[in-house]
Nucleic acid binder design. Structure first.
Lengths: 173, 173
DNA sequence: TAGCACATGTAATATGTTACATGATTGA
DNA sequence: TCAATCATGTAACATATTACATGTGCTA
């Protein structure tokens, strides 16, 4: 069901076509929260419309159909957010790789950790700049879509970098 | 393929039956990295054995079969860890929910953020104690299975808590 | 006028979940 | 002897990926 609510969430922020949502998925949710290909997004939008949670509000060139969230869609999304999940559904290949680092020879683990630290730092710098630009536009509103998540992303990247450096420093010789 | 390598990783640490691995999955990988039910684990173990990456090393009461990783299994696992992933495969419902917080009324978001902060703090205390106990037993070896990941988990929990508190403090009135 | 980004879909396959199904051993 | 935990599996269904398939509009 998460894909459904991810899409409703994006539509709650602004209407968009399958193509738009596919792009917005990549730009916002992809890195830390959820991902989906267009081949999953298009059928799900059709279902959303069938269920009355979204509707086509415009048709444009090249068969483009812009969807908007309906009142019912907003209600369902809110309801879902209000209901505490009974389990923690997480699948993260990067974190799985971190876990399995201890099955590697120490030297190789150290190498991977170094790459990880460098990469996290690079991404942190990039995201920080993006956030700065966004804050300028929104006047620093933390309830702007994606702003809370971006803050979380920055803090996560800092953790990834610092953790990797800690690990390198504490590896046996 | 991640499930396969998650299982190989657990087996690289110690042999175990499907039942064992199911438990070890819950105890270690579940929270931050990966999860799988027994209905997925048993068939995958059979495939692992068919492919020569694991083998049955003991049979016990109640049809219990203990699997161990083979040389080929270790080689495949190492090979996988060495190959940098070309995409970031992450699916996290908790983070998705954080993302969608900005589609809620501020008051409700504030409430959820408070619960989140409290829960993260509670879990952090619990995990910290577990890590302390583990360190006592292992003599503080960071390459002990799960130790790097536990450190990452602690830091992540601290981030979740601090981020939620930051969000609460910066929410518009 | 060629190449790129836009734009949508389906089919085959792989992965993951829920429900069904069965039975043994252990400890209170 | 009863309940919990141990122990393994399959079937039906849901979700997600990869490959196939088609065509438009813009701009250099």
């Amino acid at each position: 069901m998460s894909l459904r609510f991810a899409l409703l969430g994006l539509l709650a922020d602004a209407p968009g076509s399958g193509y738009d949502l596919s792009r917005r998925f990549e730009d916002s949710l992809q890195q830390y929260a959820w991902h989906a290909k267009h081949s999953q997004i298009y059928p799900e939008l059709t279902k959303l419309a069938d269920d009355g949670l979204a509707k086509v509000v415009a048709e444009g060139a090249r068969g483009r159909r812009t969807y908007a969230i309906t009142e019912q869609g907003r209600a369902d999304l809110l309801e879902w957010l209000r209901t505490p999940p009974d389990h923690r559904s997480v699948r993260s290949e990067p974190v799985l790789r971190m876990f399995l680092l201890s099955t590697m020879p120490t030297d190789e683990a150290r190498l991977l950790l170094k790459e990880l630290a460098t990469e996290a730092d690079r991404e942190l710098i990039e995201l920080t700049e993006q956030v700065r630009l966004g804050d300028e536009q929104s006047g620093g509103d933390v309830m702007a879509f994606g702003r809370l998540a971006a803050e979380y992303g920055m803090r996560q990247l800092a953790v990834a970098r610092d953790w990797a450096q800690w690990a390198i420093a504490n590896l046996p010789d």
